[in-house]
Design a protein around this nucleic acid. Structure first.
Length: 310
DNA sequence: ACTTTACGAGATTGGAAGGA
DNA sequence: TCCTTCCAATCTCGTAAAGT
């Protein structure tokens, strides 16, 4: 399943109402997508209205939000026809990675495809190759959930095309993806600002690493300080979460996608991350034996404690 | 306007410790 | 043994920000 030929970014507009509607009933009414050829960089487009089973007139809310009118749907094809056309447009389903911005588009696809008797194996082929890019972007760059427009703005870009038009939404999601892929340095600088430095990130790589080094050492202290060799289990349970908070900030430093970070900083980030994993492991072990106290191996604390004397 | 998800503050509960 | 007190773990609720 390794060789991908193309990436497809897709987005649904759905029925919606301001007076409440179960997600189950929010049928797809428009499918937009862009296809990015990995070899040539060529981009092709897909945009089709979908006639929902629910034939009631669209709510004012839905019309305002999506810009879709009842007349757009009257002559539209049903889900099955549109989705089959989508699959033809995609070409090789297996050679494709699928992306959307937020998990709701895949949920929509699964619900409507099942309802309209699209073969289960087709759905699972797509699901297997699917990535919620908003989640990846959150983990690697932005920390919190952001909208497509906000994500673009982080790179100094503007949304192109109509908002709430699924083809343009998909196209702009692709643009974010390409920034993310091709600009690892800029992405890591944004990540630093969002995850670690609340204020501006220094311009100079040396200064960044110095500042990062300070933070790492500070947090290494913070994490090891409260731990003595023997600790009560219930206290450990209490500090697990705050320690996780501190440590997970550095996962992207450890990953070092941009190569921006010094060997030393990556090493310390690694110490912090493995310290947290060891902590969890030790906790689990002691928990199995219903132990009331917990004993940490010295090797676990050593790498972090040493930092204090540098 | 409502859903979903995540998070933090405040309220509630349950068990341990200590006094009579 | 019983009752009170206290702390910590858990729950609940509200907010905020995506999504339509």
């Amino acid at each position: 399943m390794a060789d991908y030929k193309q990436y497809v970014f897709f987005d649904f507009e759905m029925l919606c109402s301001d007076s409440g509607m179960d997600f189950e009933n929010m049928e797809a009414i428009r499918l937009g997508a862009v296809k990015y050829n990995l070899e040539t960089g060529e981009i092709t487009y897909f945009d089709r209205f979908i006639k929902p089973e629910n034939q009631e007139p669209l709510t004012e809310f839905c019309k305002t939000l999506t810009g879709i009118e009842d007349c757009d749907l009257i002559n539209a094809s049903g889900f099955k026809v549109v989705f089959d056309a989508f699959l033809v447009w995609v070409g090789g389903v297996k050679k494709t990675r699928y992306f959307s911005w937020s998990p709701s588009d895949l949920s929509r696809l699964k619900i409507d495809a099942t309802k309209h008797e699209i073969p289960q194996c087709t759905i699972s082929k797509i699901e297997k190759r699917y990535i919620d890019f908003q989640m990846i972007f959150k983990q690697r760059v932005s920390k919190g959930n952001v909208s497509v427009a906000d994500a673009l703005a982080l790179y100094g870009l503007q949304f192109i095309g109509e908002k709430h038009h699924p083809m343009y939404d998909a196209y702009n999601t692709l643009r974010i993806y390409l920034q993310f892929l091709n600009k690892p340095i800029q992405s890591d600088l944004i990540m630093l600002k969002q995850y670690l430095f609340e204020e501006e990130v220094p311009l100079d790589v040396k200064q960044i690493n110095e500042k990062l080094n300070d933070r790492l050492k500070q947090d290494a202290m913070l994490v090891t300080e409260p731990l003595r060799e023997v600790y009560r289990m219930r206290n450990v349970k209490k500090i697990k979460k705050p320690i996780r908070r501190i440590v997970e900030k550095y996962e992207n430093v450890l990953l070092n996608r941009s190569g921006l970070f010094t060997e030393e900083n990556v090493l310390i980030a690694g110490h912090l991350v493995s310290f947290y994993h060891d902590l969890l492991l030790t906790y689990e072990e002691h928990y199995c034996y219903s132990s009331k106290t917990i004993i940490f191996d010295e090797y676990m604390l050593q790498p972090l404690k040493q930092l204090a004397f540098k």
